[in-house]
Amino acid sequence: MQSRPILVGLASPRTGGMLALAGVIALLPLFLSNKYFYDIVVLVGLNAIVCVGLNLLIGYAGQISLGHAGFFGAGAYGSAILASRFGWPPIAAMLATTLAVALLAYLVGRPILRLKGHYLAMATLGMGIIVFMVITTEDAYTGGPDGIAVVPFSIGGYVLQGERVWYWVVGALLLLAVWLAQNLIDSPAGRALRALHSSEVGAEVVGINAAKHKVMVFVISAVFASVAGSLAAHYSGFITPGKATFLHSIELVTMVVFGGMASTFGAVVGAAVLTTLPQLLAVFEDYEMMVFGAVMMGTMIFLPRGVVPSIARLFQARSKQQIGDKESGA
């Protein structure tokens, strides 16, 4: 790696992608004329963090989860309750919540990750719905369906407030999330995961502990969702169970698949498109839902691998023609 010339390193899709993302984050504020646009971008960033984690599970380990909104909700409410009702410092509340969610994901993940395909989907869905029901029912703590107010995030007396501050915080965390995900993918564990995706039995035969790896990725993706949830709660200053619903779980999976499975940047693009789309479609009023559904269907029919991999293939095909170079990794 080190002996490779820097230029080649830059040209590799991974590093190039990281740099491109960092560039976009650095330059985007030039185009954001008011707080409303900042707000949209912060929401995109938070969703993208969840999707980068979820993509590890869906795209690389090949395990579907229809319950990740449950982890997001658990993170959001854990932080909200500890920080707002019990007066914990937000950072401590977030850490404690993240640990608790990781433990929950581990305990839940161990038995249910033995399930395959749609049965796993059902089990994760059931888990998500149970989390949602607890949140709406235990209104003494959670405020019930109407939600609760959340104190602003603060670290050692410095209060994070305002869309612009949050923009940089979320931007940095997104870069961190992407970096972590990419490192995981390139590690031996990541290779084991990909082996799992193509054939679980095959992977076991060559000595990969399938169960252990699946649970590990499940926990990691749950942690990403939980942290994003905690941040979202503090950023919004108010949280309702809407973010823990089954529909939000579906939304998250859709973002991952839409952007392109097994592509970290695809997950980011998917989050960006699907978070912004409702804002753009607001002009359609009563037809908004129809158009949204049609866009989703159309994209998946014509770009079945998702936006980013489909376009990347297009470029690759072209550059292959030009240089005759061999294809780089997916």
Binding site: Y36, I40, L43, S236, T240, G242
Partner: peptide, 27 residues
């Protein structure tokens, strides 16, 4: 509620409304 929050930001920042009448639900 999340969508409502974003739309209210849009009303205030982008559309620069003078007053807001709305919010069907308590959440």
């Amino acid at each position: 509620a999340e969508k409502a929050r974003t739309f209210v930001k849009r009303l205030i920042e982008q559309d620069k409304v003078d007053v807001i009448v709305g919010g069907s639900t308590t959440g």
